[in-house]
């Protein structure tokens, strides 16, 4: 059965990020997903607009992180985890089709995790890592990419004089922005963020949120968050999941002011028992 989930209404945010979105950059179609025998996503159909921020919200265990990880095949790394039906397409290409280069996919679809995870290397080497893996050796190219990525991650001014100190030697908020810089270095089109601010203090959170606002001019961002105020502040579209199903997907202003579905209303207003 195809779930009936209405596309987001045209909102000012959509208009601001481009003309009418006829086709999403990412098209999730009737997706079922299971860990072994345990099905965790049911019939999810969702269209993610380019150069906009889409937030996934919902209670723990609703499948939002699993869905996020489907977008760059991170679930491939888990035994028994598999898509049992449906597809994920990026620019019309089924990313699970045979022959798709997973390394290239993950270059195009970068990911930032809940807890910052810099490599035990210098700040410079953290950002340069992806480029070196991709076979780039020319120093000037790497230098340029490191500076560009750190500037894009709003971190350059804070670390430019200590690029060769350890990535562990900076604050938690800076480490998270370093991880964002590392993701940006390989010039992805899409950035997935799995609760990127859950371990950060309010100031560091505000810096990452401001960064998200700036990045969406160039990148498509999908963010999983438990912080509904954050979803309200940062995202253009919001999808609410419950028990592995997409309950509602709409413009963020609509979701947080007058959602269509009773379950969404009860969740966002704190009435979910």
């Amino acid at each position: 059965m195809v779930s009936v989930v209405e596309m987001p209404e045209k909102t000012s945010q959509i208009t601001a990020s481009g003309p009418e979105v006829r086709r999403g950059l990412i098209e999730i179609k009737q997706l079922d997903f299971a860990y072994g025998d345990h099905q965790v996503l049911h019939d999810v159909t969702l269209s993610i607009a380019p150069r906009a921020v889409t937030a996934f919200i919902g209670p723990s265990g609703c499948g939002k992180t699993t869905l996020l990880r489907c977008l760059n095949r991170m679930n491939d790394l888990i035994d028994g985890a598999r898509i049992t039906r449906g597809s994920v397409e990026i620019e019309g290409i089924d990313i699970n089709a045979p022959g798709v280069d997973v390394v290239d996919l993950r270059r195009r679809v970068g990911m930032v995790f809940q807890k910052s995870n810099p490599f035990p290397k210098s700040i410079y080497d953290n950002v340069a890592y992806g480029l070196r893996i991709a076979g780039i050796t020319k120093r000037t190219l790497i230098d340029e990419a490191v500076e560009r990525s750190l500037r894009s991650a709003a971190l350059w001014d804070e670390v430019k004089d200590r690029l060769h100190v350890s990535g562990y030697g900076i604050s938690g908020g800076q480490q998270q922005r370093l991880c964002i810089a590392r993701a940006l270095a390989v010039e992805p089109e899409i950035i997935l963020m799995d609760e990127p601010c859950s371990a950060l203090d309010p100031i560091a959170t505000a810096k990452v949120e401001e960064l998200i606002r700036q990045l969406k001019q160039q990148y498509t961002i999908v963010i999983v968050t438990h912080n509904m105020q954050q979803a309200g502040r940062c995202s253009d579209h919001t999808a609410f999941f419950y028990l592995g199903r997409l309950i509602e997907f709409d413009g963020t202003a609509k979701i947080f002011s007058n959602p269509r579905q009773r379950q969404t209303e009860e969740y966002i207003t704190g009435r979910f028992g």
Binding site: M228, Q229, G232, F256, S257, N258, P259, E265, I268, T269, G270
Partner: peptide
Amino acid sequence: RFQPVASDLR
């Protein structure tokens, strides 16, 4: 204190 949304905010 509660940052109400949706019907609560209204």
